[in-house]
C-alpha cells in the first residue's frame, strides 16, 4: 500500500529554502565595511585636533562605492531582479528587509553630501567650474557638516546592525537565530572598516586612533562571538545542534581557524604590539582582519544552511 503525503514536501506548503551562495556573504561583508567606514569617517571628523588628512576626507565616498558593489552581488542572487522596485512601493515597519531597503536608499545622499562637505575648497575648485547646480549641494553640505556627520554615524550603525538582523530574523535557520548577530555584524563591520582605512595612507595620528578603536572593536567582537556560541548552546535542541556545528562539528575548523585565530587573535596581537612597541604599521594585520570579516559571514551563512 502506498501512502501519499499530500500536505508536506510541497513547495506551496513547506517553503523550500533558497540556498545562498557566495553572493550573500560578500554582500553582508561589503555592507558591513560600508557601515564601518561611515561611522569611522564621522568619528574621525568629530575628534579634536589636527584637520583631516587627504585620504580621510575622501573616506565618506568609499561607503556608497562599496555598498554598490555589495548590491551588485545581492542583485546577482535575486531570482527576480526586475521586482526590486516593489521594495520601494511600500514601507513595512515589521519587515527588516523593508527597513534595509530604505536605509540603503538613504545612505547614498547622506554619504555623498558628507563627502562633499569634507572636501577642501582647493579640492573642490576644479570640479566647481563644471559642477553647476552641484555647487548648491556643496554649499548646503558644508553648512550642515555637523548634522551630516551625525546622520552618517546613525545610518552606519543602522546598516551594520541591519546586516545581522537580516540573518537573525530567519527563524528557520537555527544557527542564525540569535539576537547577538546584529551587534556582532555591526562591530565586525566597524573593525573591518577600520582595517580598510588603515590600508590607506592616513596621517600617523589618524592611524593611531583607528588602531585604538580597532583593538577595542576586536575585543568586543570576541566577547560577542562567545555570547553567540553560549546563546546557541543553551537554547533549544535545534540551536544546540547549530552550536555543535562550531564546537566539534563540520564548521569548527573554518570558524576557529579563519575567524577566531587568523581573523581576530593574530591581528589583535599584531596591532597591540604595534601600539605598545611603537613599530611601523604592518599591512598584515588589516589584511587578516578583512579576510576574517569575510570568513565570519561566509562561515555563518554556510553553517546556517547546513
Amino acid at each position: 500500500m502506498h501512502e501519499t503525503i499530500t500536505n508536506r514536501a510541497n513547495p506551496m506548503i513547506d517553503p523550500a529554502l533558497h540556498i545562498w551562495g557566495w553572493e550573500i556573504p560578500v554582500y553582508l561583508f561589503l555592507g558591513g565595511l560600508a557601515a564601518g567606514l561611515m561611522i569611522l569617517s564621522a568619528m574621525l571628523a568629530r575628534r579634536d585636533g589636527a584637520p583631516l588628512s587627504r585620504w580621510a576626507r575622501r573616506l565618506p565616498f568609499a561607503a556608497p562605492a562599496l555598498l554598490s558593489l555589495g548590491m551588485l552581488a545581492l542583485f546577482l542572487d535575486l531570482e527576480h531582479p526586475a521586482h526590486v522596485f516593489r521594495f520601494y512601493l511600500a514601507f513595512r515597519p515589521a519587515s527588516p528587509m523593508s527597513w534595509g531597503a530604505w536605509i540603503l536608499v538613504a545612505i547614498y545622499p547622506a554619504s555623498l553630501l558628507y563627502g562633499l562637505a569634507l572636501l577642501t575648497d582647493e579640492e573642490w575648485a576644479p570640479a566647481a567650474r563644471a559642477a553647476g547646480p552641484f555647487e548648491k549641494f556643496r554649499a548646503f553640505a558644508v553648512a550642515k557638516t555637523g548634522a551630516l556627520a551625525w546622520i552618517n554615524a546613525v545610518l552606519g550603525i543602522a546598516l551594520g546592525a541591519y546586516t545581522g538582523v537580516l540573518l537573525g530574523n530567519l527563524g528557520a535557520r537555527a544557527a542564525w537565530n540569535s539576537p547577538v548577530l546584529a551587534p556582532l555584524f555591526l562591530v565586525s563591520g566597524f573593525s573591518t572598516g577600520a582595517a580598510l582605512a588603515m590600508l590607506l595612507p592616513l596621517s600617523p595620528s589618524e592611524k593611531h586612533l583607528l588602531r585604538r578603536w580597532d583593538l577595542a572593536a576586536i575585543g568586543v567582537e570576541a566577547a560577542l562571538l562567545g555570547l553567540f556560541l553560549v546563546g546557541l548552546s543553551t537554547g533549544g535542541a535545534a540551536t544546540r545542534e547549530a552550536a555543535a556545528l562550531f564546537l566539534g562539528g563540520a564548521f569548527t575548523a573554518p570558524f576557529f581557524v579563519f575567524v577566531v585565530i587568523a581573523g581576530l587573535g593574530v591581528p589583535f596581537v599584531l596591532e597591540a604590539v604595534e601600539w605598545r612597541k611603537k613599530l611601523a604599521p604592518t599591512l598584515f594585520a588589516p589584511a587578516l582582519l578583512l579576510a576574517g570579516g569575510l570568513a565570519l559571514r561566509w562561515v555563518l551563512v554556510a553553517a546556517g544552511q547546513a
Binding site: G248, G249, A250, F251, T252, A253, F256, V257, I261, A262
Partner: peptide, 14 residues
Amino acid sequence: AGEIGLVTAVLIGF
C-alpha cells in the same frame, strides 16, 4: 583527527 584536530594544527603550527 577531525575538526578540532585542524584547530590544534593551527595552534601547534603557530
